[in-house]
Amino acid sequence: MSHNSMPLTTSERLSGRLLAAVAVATAIFLVAPILAIVPLAFSDGEFLVYPIRGYSLKWMEAFFSSEKWAMAVKNSFFIGSLSAALATVLGTMAAIGLSRTDFLGKNVLTGFVLSPLVVPIVIYAVGLYFFFAPLGLTQSYTGIVLAHAALGAPFVVVTVSASLSGFDHNLMRAAASLGASPLLAFRRVMLPLVLPGVVTGALFAFAASFDEVVTVLFLAAPEQRTIPREMFSGLRESLSPIIAAASAVMIVIAVLLLAAVELLKRRAQRMRATA
């Protein structure tokens, strides 16, 4: 769809091309390091090094048949799902509270809720370690799930807040006037309308947990190791291309998550257009 059918001037055409060149360069800068690891997953060598002399699927096979890695995959999905669920519930409630009309300390509270996005993760992990140790939460799934939920919640707050900014609060009043309790009004009216934001936030929260390694390093016992944690020790101990295989699998999952987010965004736009 072309919004602007006016003929372009020479300088406009030039600046358009320059913009395209910069955009492509930026995209390469962002994506190339991620893609650099992928060919190594299909190397038939013994070490994680270029150049690749021959290709094989042996490291992929090794990844999928290893008990250690299977455990890591299971842990990643288990911790990711639980922490995303927890982050989604807490983050959605926080976003709704913060979307209300102004109250004293709203900005401070918003900053506080979003702080996990900016606090250096190492500091957060060390703090968690000392906080959790006396509570017996280190070396436990509970501890890691709680840690990841706190890291994922800000993403939910951001996406749900964005959905709520287009939400007509009169609808909640209408629901109340028609006899719906606040909880029922939330379930029947607000939740269906902000659902794209909630699910997008949940996916981001899952992704945040899925690639998180620092708090896992501090808090996880060997039986709670996740994929990134296993890769981290693999890098220190063996440097075998199985790490590249694990990376390739994680990239595929990340791409699937991104695609899901994009689909949701389109759906939300359609809903907004018809609302």
Partner: peptide
């Protein structure tokens, strides 16, 4: 008495129909 227990009908300027 909270609004949802008052049993009072209400019509809003922007209609406030549930779009979904």
């Amino acid at each position: 008495k909270p609004p949802h227990e008052r049993g009072i009908g209400m019509v809003f300027q922007n209609y406030a129909l549930f779009p979904h």
